[in-house]
Amino acid sequence: MNAVDLLFYFFATLSVGGGLLMIISRHPVPAALFMIISLVSVAALFVLLEAFFLAILQVLVYAGAVMVLFLFIIMLMDVGPDGGKVSRIKLISGLAGCLSFGILVVLLLQFSGIGNAEPGNWQEIQNTEPVNGDSLLFSTSMKNFGYGLFTKYMLPIQVAGFLLLASMVGVIVLSKKSITSGGIK
């Protein structure tokens, strides 16, 4: 076990533990903070994989912007420990949770190829020849991300962008409507 492994176990524990504490904690503000811890340690895991760009995006987008919004909303609504009421659809949400966890496990077992390759043998995976003669070697540099996103994955990116735009327009329409119906006209 070397230093990188130690760091991996440290941050892995932190991210899983943070996630767990986020679900458990009663008050929403600490829950949000645990989620930040979890997200930042996932970013640290990306750093250990030498995916700096991904790690920084993780911090910038999730920890830096999304969670600030979450905290902002939680604080603005002033949700107390009893704010999140026990929902009526507890059974349904429980079932959905179990189902998605099961699917996750099955997918992991299916695609991770446990038993096929030595786990943690990162160097070997990196050095393998790219499949179907792609001239661009896999790397974590930003240029590769950009190139991949705007050539191979052009359609998915456009679709994702369109979805985000639609949701944004939807939010604007909804919030506008509530103001005018409120009597301001």
Binding site: F52, F53, I56, L57, V59, L60, A63, G64, A65, V68
Partner: peptide, 10 residues
């Protein structure tokens, strides 16, 4: 620069 933006946003 992204690192600076990310960390300062924390």
């Amino acid at each position: 620069i992204l690192f600076v933006l990310a960390v300062s946003s924390l």
